[in-house]
């Protein structure tokens, strides 16, 4: 399993959740973990690839990606990005559906909040393959809003509608 990269430069704060999701999936689903890191790498390079601390961080992240790619060898989801894209999309939508079913059943808990939020992060990740489809864009928006809304309701003792 890849070690966590610390410290994350402040410029990359917005990527910390994607990197944490990568780490959480190193064993559970290495393909998902790989593409979360690739998203962080690609986005990080757009944010700042010039300052020494960011270059150092990105260089370590690239080391992790190269190692992970070697470990995954001839996996189709890695060698063919179109297969990888379908893999990440299916995984994200499964997570979204789980949370949505819990929501519709009136079962509100931390795990479903996390599922909504993780689904939104994985839908972000799909942007490494190109522009998001309108459907995925809407799913991402809904999942992120639901995660925040239910989290705030539970925190303040309210029952989500």
């Amino acid at each position: 399993m890849a070690a966590q990269l610390n410290p994350i430069p402040p410029q990359f704060k917005s990527l910390q959740h994607h990197l944490r999701t990568a780490q959480e999936h190193d064993k559970r689903d290495p393909v998902v973990a790989y593409y979360c890191r690739l998203y962080a790498m690609q986005t990080g390079m757009k944010i700042d690839s010039k300052s020494p601390e960011c270059r150092k961080f990105l260089s370590k992240l690239m080391d992790q990606l190269e190692t992970q790619k070697k470990q995954l060898g001839d996996c189709d989801s890695i060698t063919q990005e179109i297969v990888g894209s379908a893999h990440v999309e299916n995984y994200a939508l499964k997570m979204f559906l789980y949370a949505d079913n819990e929501d519709r059943a009136g079962s509100f808990h931390k795990n479903m909040i996390k599922s909504f939020y993780t689904a939104s992060l994985l839908l972000d990740t799909l942007s490494v393959f190109g522009e998001l489809t309108e459907e995925n864009f809407q799913h991402r928006k809904y999942a992120r809003w639901k995660a925040t809304y239910i989290h705030n309701c539970l925190k303040s003792g309210m029952t989500p509608e």
């Binding site: 690739l38 790498m41 690609q42 390079m45 690839s49 010039k50 020494p52 270059r55 990105l58 260089s59 690239m62 990606l65 190269e66 790619k69 060698t79 990005e81």
Partner: peptide, 27 residues
């Protein structure tokens, strides 16, 4: 030294871009 520093930074940036392209089999 300023221009040397800029040049080093730019080379490292290119290196990252090239590694990313290789990783994604885009070279």
């Amino acid at each position: 030294t300023g221009s040397v520093g800029t040049s080093v930074a730019s080379t490292e940036q290119d290196d990252l871009s090239q590694r990313l392209a290789r990783l994604r089999d885009q070279v």
